[in-house]
Structures are given as structure tokens and as C-alpha cells.
């Protein structure tokens, strides 16, 4: 049996008088207070932008922190260059999904180049656990979870039931070329789930 000897630190008489240690603690917090106060004033009142910020806060709705390229969020469906969905309705993602939140209805393509396409491709985000298994399972790289839609919030449940048109709409958001490094530090474009706005395409 291994014994861990716990070393109990006995307070010295000086520390037990309490006041000097309290004064030391107050000195630390007070110095933070005054340093940050001075920094805020220099930055925001005297407009000295080179001064270190007085707070590490990211003011969320206006500012967003850069997201890692590996980050998983709301899904999107990719398009082929001719504008048709890449998805071949093979049902791999639906089978892989542990939450059973993907609903696909396959249909035959009229021209016969590809056997099937998804007539219906719905995702119920309220069931999704964002595990990314659908992305792993897809043989066509048709479904991705890199929409960088950070603030999934709505007043109605139906807003979280995404249909094919919605999922396809963000197809051109990022391409493979932008995956490698370019995304780091790029401010994430805000995709408003509620307003169905078309996302801005990043340049480059």
C-alpha cells in the first residue's frame, strides 16, 4: 500500500494575524483594478489602441472568436459543379446516425448518369448530437458539418427541422482549398438560421 504523506502547512504567527495576508490579497486585486482601469481609459477615452486591452472579454453577439476548422456544427449539403446535389441517396448517413435525425427519401435521377438523388433530405437538429458520424460515413463528401453557424437558437421547434433546400443553400461557403490553414483567424460569417439569409461567400 502506497501512503501519500500529506504535508500540512502550518501558518506562521505573522500569517495568523490575518491582516498582512489580507492586505497582500487586496493588493493583488486592487492592482488588477487600477491597471485595468488605466488600460480601459487609455484605449477607449484617449484612443491609444496599442495599449494592452483591460479585459479578455469577447463581446459575443458583436464579436466572435475564430472557430477551429475541425469544429462541427450545423450540417450543409454540397453541390456538384453543375449545381446538382452531390448526395446519391445511399442512406449511409441515415444508417450511421445514432440519433436517427436524418430522413432521406431517394428518387431516381431522370438522366440516369447517377442512379439516385435525395428527393427529401431533412435533418432534425433538435435530435442531432453533433457527433459527425454522418460526415464520416458519406462516400461522396456530400454532407459536411462546417457551416460555422455558432448560435443555433430560435423561438420555434420547426426552425430546427432543416430541409434539403436549406441545407444545400450554404454549399459554396467553404471549399477544400480553404480548409488548409486559411480558415484560422477568419471571422466566421453569421448565418442566420431564422431569416434564411444567403451566406456570404468568403473571398479567396
Amino acid at each position: 500500500m502506497i501512503d501519500k504523506k500529506v504535508v500540512r502547512v502550518r501558518l506562521s504567527w505573522w500569517q495568523k494575524t490575518y491582516y498582512p495576508e489580507v492586505a497582500r490579497g487586496l493588493w493583488i486585486t486592487a492592482s488588477h483594478f487600477f491597471v485595468n482601469f488605466a488600460r480601459h481609459w487609455m484605449r477607449h477615452v484617449f484612443r491609444m489602441k496599442s495599449v494592452t486591452p483591460g479585459a479578455v472579454t469577447i463581446q459575443y453577439p458583436e464579436e466572435k472568436r475564430p472557430v477551429s476548422p475541425r469544429w462541427r456544427g450545423r450540417h450543409r449539403l454540397m453541390l456538384r459543379p453543375d449545381g446538382s446535389p452531390r448526395c446519391v441517396a445511399c442512406m449511409m448517413c441515415e444508417s450511421a446516425c445514432p440519433d436517427e435525425c436524418i430522413y432521406i427519401t431517394p428518387a431516381e435521377t431522370p438522366d440516369g448518369r447517377v442512379e439516385k438523388y435525395p428527393a427529401v433530405f431533412d435533418i432534425d437538429l433538435l435530435r442531432c448530437c453533433f457527433c459527425g458520424l454522418c460526415v464520416e460515413a458519406c462516400p461522396e463528401d456530400a454532407i459536411r458539418m462546417d457551416s460555422f453557424d455558432l448560435d443555433l437558437a430560435s423561438y420555434a421547434r420547426k426552425d430546427f427541422y432543416l430541409d434539403r433546400e436549406f441545407l444545400l443553400r450554404n454549399s459554396e461557403l467553404t471549399t477544400h482549398a480553404q480548409y488548409d490553414g486559411e480558415l484560422e483567424g477568419r471571422p466566421v460569417s453569421r448565418l442566420n438560421l431564422l431569416k434564411d439569409t444567403h451566406p456570404t461567400t468568403p473571398s479567396g
Binding site: 486592487a30 488588477h32 483594478f33 482601469f37 479585459a55
Partner: peptide
Amino acid sequence: KQPALMQDRL
């Protein structure tokens, strides 16, 4: 506001 300044917050 004061604790925010003391704790490097806004």
C-alpha cells in the same frame, strides 16, 4: 463593474 475590472472582465 468593480469586480469585473478586478478580474480582467468587462
